[in-house]
Structure formats: structure tokens, C-alpha cells
Design a binder for these strands. Structure first.
Lengths: 214, 214, 214, 214
DNA sequence: TATGAATGAGAATTCATTCAT
DNA sequence: GATGAATGAATTCTCATTCAT
């Protein structure tokens, strides 16, 4: 009986937290961490300000929770998409697709996950990177598999992943800065084309920059 | 005589402004716009608080001036590097090199030009994009030239440029988030390799994603 | 139940506002609008600085609220005194008495309602005049009645009222400037005497300046 | 020779002071003491800010000098007008005329001499009253003369003067607050009429308020 | 002597956080 | 538990006054 009550309680608490996080995402996204106003968050969550602080000790922790939840859900989305195919190149395709698709669906997280980094450089970065590298390990396996299957050139996989993640972040970032014109996912095909095959046409010239595909 | 005095004055004013901007870059970079403290900026510039406001009407204008100076100098650096070579592909190489090299030399501008965008989405974005697209027009010409010389595949040049700028921003961004490990310019070669020739080895597979170079 | 709570709340809010206004009257009166210091007001109200701004968005609004309350209460006092008598001349007597009596009881308002006008010439003047002319319309009726009853000479009533209000303001003003020596209400009788019958004794001489009473 | 140089110097200094005071009157009148800006005053005087402070140790002293000069000139104007006639009642007429005429010509002084009093209640008031009572002594003599010539009723002259000065200040004040509509001097005749003969027509009623003129 | 750049004390205002109800 | 009124530290910005040139 007690246990059941506790469970109910837990669910209630989780609901409250979700309620607050959902409001916080919007407000932080609109105004950035500093300008975001706890009053706004409380109002948007239809809760008293005190309640917000009951569930999240302070503004910073609330912000980090928003970041955390965002990163978790990004990671989950990517991971579950990857599962759907087995070919390494197709997996990479899925990564790119699901990354862009995620931020298209979660526009509010762009400002928070990408721009606001600097606000917490030292504090958040590590947490961010944990998540990020949690991903990265899985992704590294995919590239290794692609390599061992002879699908991709012999390159330093860490560097390739750096380029890929930079590329994806950068694309999302540019889309945001430019005012979210067009669909973000429309950029998938050009990214795939370039990331997979580059822009150079001429074999000879290509050689200068690395082993060109034959 | 008077004119000479005016000139001296102008130089003095420019020096003061530089002194303040140099301090502001550091402080804004460390703390972001909102948390950055005008007192800190004044102290770092070894000037009175009032003096800072004498030269920059308010914090926002000071921040924008920092952004402006940064973008100008980024643009100038890239443009002057481009001039040095004539081959379009080499010009693209220079863009990539000088972009990364710029942010390696101006670490403080990363936080300001890349992360803090969101703070001023509406206010700065346009100014930013003017600068940015000032660049872009020149860069577009380079790609067009490359295209007409048959150096690169028939692709939508606008999209290619989006990918390139996203890629560069993203690489710089990742370097910053990861704590600026290693030299940023060390990433030039992998970027070139991927951007020019892609990661795929196998011709057949490549075809799926676009015209592979022959 | 809810309604009762709301009512309690309203009363609480009104009490707080009163508390702040009571402090503000004193401080504004002492220092004038510009020099008055919100910190002082808060301390005198025994409230935190933030609380003052919670109830009055900014210093200007606080000041205007003080003015408003003062004018309202001046008007109410005069109006309620007027009601007590029916003879027009007695009503005029009441106006003069209650005007001086009001400022004797509300010394702090002298500085605010009379001296500080200039601070807000454009902003407040209209609001002030609304109040003031709210009064004036009622007062005009009294003079008209006096006229139609043949109690006063045929004069331009608007001009007479201008003189009366000027006279009253001026008397209060002089009392303040002179350091509030003596009771302000002691001046009622001389004002009545002069305003009603003038200073001139000699009939013939009086004629030069207007219809002398016969 | 030296003396002549000193004289020249004195004249120069007086000119500079005049230049500054002329500017200060305008600025203080526009903005009140606190809001008035020494920069504005300097610019309007076409002098450097440092020069202003060379001639007037600080803002307060400058303000007081403006007040002083204003009061002097008011006093002089009134006094010189009084000289022109010999009949006491005509002298009183002249006082009223010249007072209003002075403020009509020196609109900027209204805000300074009348409204801003409160700013310096303690500091300026005494200086103000010296001037004022300097006047008052002369004026008292006039009323005494009128009394001894049997021109005016037996009244407490001090009180009568208080009413007159209050009345004049009040009239000027109202004119200012109302936005200086019409000519201030147009109000002279109604003031004279009321001050000299009152508003009451009926002899019997008048008696209640004091000895009515016969 | 004249100047205006430099200054920093001082003022208004904001807002995360607390805590009595 | 939930609330939101109260708070005061922190922040931006102003401006009288100084002083080196």
C-alpha cells in the first residue's frame, strides 16, 4: 500500500518536473539562460514560482536539466534510428537524417544546446561531452565497421567523426541563424552527397586532397 | 595646425576604442553578453567605468562593436588570403585554412561570434548576415568559377556553401566546446579531404549519394 | 471563500501601497522628485527596495501616484466642506478655509503639489489640471450662483477664479517658503476680507479700479 | 596702466559670467536644477565645461547665482517702476504691473524662482527671503503711507503684503502651469479690481468680512 | 586661461531565491 | 505541498567635478 503511494508520488513528481521542463525549454530558448526569467517559466508551467524552485534547486540546475533531457532525447532518437538498418553507410545516413530531423522537431533546443553552450562552458561542457561521447562511442563502432567492410577510405575515424559532428551542428546552427528558412531536413541529401563523395569531380585533382574513390 | 590636432584626436579616440574593445572581447567571451559586467570591462581596460560609456553609449552597442570588429577582421583575413592564389580549388582551400586560422588566433571571438548569436538573434542577426553574405557573394563566385572550369560536380552552389559554412562554424564550435584541444588548424587537411572527395571509397556505393568523381 | 481571500488580498495590497505612498510623500517633499532616493523611500516604508518597485513600476509612477492621491484628497476635502453650507459666499469661504486647512494638515504635499510641478510640466500638468478643473467646474457654479443672487459684482468669473486659485496657491507657497511660521489657517480671515471687500477704503478712489460695493 | 588692465579683466570676467548665467537660466528653467546638465549649460554658453566651473565653483553655486541675478533684476524693475509715481495706490498698481510684466519678459525665471524653491528650501530660502524682504521693507513703507493718507482700510499691513505677494506669485504660477496661455499682464486689471475693491457687491454682506469701503 | 576627457560615486531598476502563510 | 510577496545583491548607466594639456 505504502509502496503504491510512493509510486503514485513518483509519477506525480515526474509529471511536475516534465511540466516545468517543458515550460523552461521554451523560455530558455527564447531568451537565453541569463535573460530567461523564472517568473515566466513558472507562469508558463502554470505553477507558482516557489514550486519551480522546489523541484529544481536553482535556475542553473533547471537549465542543466533542460540540457540533459534534450541531449538524452537527441541521443535516443539517433540510437533508435540507427537500429533500424544494418549497413554502416545506411547507419551514417540515419545519423544525419535523425540529427537534423530532431532539431527540426525540437527547434527550441537549438538555442539551448548549441548557442548557450558558452554560458556554461566549464560547468556544462563536461556533462554535454559525456552525452556526446556516449554517442560518439557507438558512432565510432559504426565507422569502424564501415572501414573493416572496405566501405570508406582509410581515414582517422576520430577526425572524421569530429568533422561529421561539427558539420551537423554547424548546419543546424546556420539554419537557426538564418531564421529557419526552409526545412532543415531538406539539407540531408546535399550533406550526404558531400560527406560521402565530396565536391570534386576530377580524379586527378582529387588525389591531391586524399585518396579519391575509384 | 588645427587639422593636425584633429587627426591626433582621432587617433587617440581610435586607440581608446581599441583599448576598450580589446578588454570587451575578453570579458564577453568569458561570460557571454548578459553575464559580462561593464565594471570588469572597464577594469580590464584600465579605465573608469564612465569612460567606457563615453565611447560606447551602452553595453549593447559595445557588444555589437565587438562583433562588428570581429566580423570585419574575419572577412578581411579570408579575403586577403583568397587573393594570394588564382585556382578556384586553391581559393577554397584558403578559405578553410584562413577561417580556422582566424579563430585559432582569435579564440575569444568564438564565444562571441558563434555562441552568443542567439542573444541578439533579431538585432544582430541581420548585421551578422550582411557581413556573412558579403563574404558569401565573393565565395559564390569562386564556386561558380570552379564549376565553369569543370573542377567540381554540378551541384547547387548555394547548398554547397551552406554546407561549407556550416561545416566551418561547426568545427570551430566543437573545438571550443571540447576545450580547444590540439591546434584548430590541424583539422584543415581532414576537412579538405572530406569536403573535396568525401569519405566513400567504393564507386558504386558512392553513386547512390551523388555523382562520384571519375 | 475564494472571494473573501481576494478581498483580503486587495486590502493587503492597498495597505502596502498606502505604506509606500506615506513614505514617498515625505521623501519627495523633502528632496523633490529628482533628489529623492528610492532607497530612502523603501527604508522609511520599512520595506525592501524591491518591494517598492513591486507596487510602483518606477519612480515616476510612484511620484505621480503620490500627486494623484494628494489631489484627490484635496478635492474631496474641499468638496465635502462645500456641501455643508448653502449660501454661495459661505461656500467660497469654505473653499478658502478648507484649502488652507488641507495644506496645513498635509504640509508634505505643498512641496509636491506646488513646487514640483515643473519637474513634470508636460507629463503631469494635464493630469493635475484635470483634477484642478474638476474642481473648477464646481467652483464656477458657485460663483455663478453668487452672481445670479446679486451677491457679487458683475465680473468675468473665469478671471475671478484664476485670481482665487492663484491667491490660494500663492499663500500656501509663501507660507512654505517662509518656513511655515504661524498657522496657515490664521490667514483665512485676511484673505476673505481682501478677496471679498478689497483693501481700499475710499469710495471715489475705488471706482477707478472697478465697481465698488455700495 | 595695471589698474586699467585689471578693469578690462573685470569686465571680461563679468561678460563671461553673464554668458554663463544666460545659458544657465535657460537650461535650469527647462529641466529644473537636478535634471539640468552642466554639459548643456557649457554648450549653450559656447564654453568648455571646465570654464563654467572656473567661474562658478559648482552647480549649486551657479544655480544660486542665477536665482540671485533674477531676484535682483525683479527687485530693480519693481523699484524703478515705483519711483515713477508718487501716489501710494498708484505705487501698488505699479508693483502689480511690473511684477507680472517682469515674469512675462523673463519666462525662464518662473520655473527657477517659483517652482525650484523646494529644491533648496533650506539653502536658498534665506537668500531668497533677504531679497524678498529687501523688497518688502520698501513695500511696507508704501502701504504705511497709504494707510496714513487714509487710502486703505485699517488692516495689518504685514498680512496684506503676504496676501499680495502670495497672490502675485500664485498668478504667475498658475499662468505657468496652465501653459502660459494669453498674456500674463492681461491679468493686471482683474487683480487690481479684486485686491483694491473685492468681489462683493452688497454692503451689508461685505461687513461680515471686514470694513467695507463706504 | 580654456578645455573636455576621465572618473567613480551614486541612482534606478531587476530578479533569483527565500519563507511565512 | 504550493504559493507568490518580500528581499537586497548586483547591474547598468549618469553626471558633477577634476585636472593634465
Amino acid at each position: 500500500m505504502k509502496i503504491k503511494g510512493d509510486d503514485k508520488m513518483k509519477i506525480l513528481i515526474e509529471n511536475r518536473k516534465k511540466q516545468i521542463l517543458d515550460a523552461a525549454v521554451i523560455v530558455f530558448s527564447k531568451d537565453g539562460f541569463s535573460r530567461a526569467n523564472t517568473d515566466d517559466i513558472a507562469k508558463r508551467a502554470k505553477l507558482g514560482k516557489g514550486t519551480v524552485f522546489r523541484y529544481f534547486k536553482n535556475k542553473k540546475i533547471l537549465f542543466c536539466s533542460v540540457v540533459d533531457r534534450g541531449l538524452d532525447s537527441l541521443k535516443n532518437e539517433i540510437m533508435s534510428e540507427i537500429e533500424k538498418v544494418s549497413d554502416p553507410l545506411e547507419k551514417i545516413e540515419k545519423i544525419i537524417e535523425s540529427y537534423l530531423s530532431f532539431f527540426e522537431k525540437n527547434k527550441n533546443l537549438i538555442g539551448i544546446l548549441i548557442h548557450e553552450q558558452s554560458s556554461f562552458q566549464k560547468r556544462i561542457a563536461s556533462q554535454y561531452l559525456n552525452h556526446y561521447y556516449g554517442n560518439v562511442d557507438r558512432i565510432k563502432l559504426i565507422f569502424k565497421e564501415a572501414l573493416s567492410q572496405g566501405l570508406i577510405k582509410r581515414m582517422d575515424i576520430n577526425k572524421v567523426i569530429t568533422v561529421l559532428t561539427g558539420l551537423l551542428n554547424g548546419i543546424v546552427y546556420m539554419w537557426q541563424v538564418e531564421g529557419r528558412k526552409g526545412k532543415l531536413t531538406d539539407r540531408v541529401s546535399i550533406i550526404l552527397e558531400i560527406f560521402f563523395t565530396g565536391i570534386i569531380k576530377n580524379k586527378a585533382r582529387g588525389k591531391k586532397y586524399g585518396r579519391i574513390s575509384v
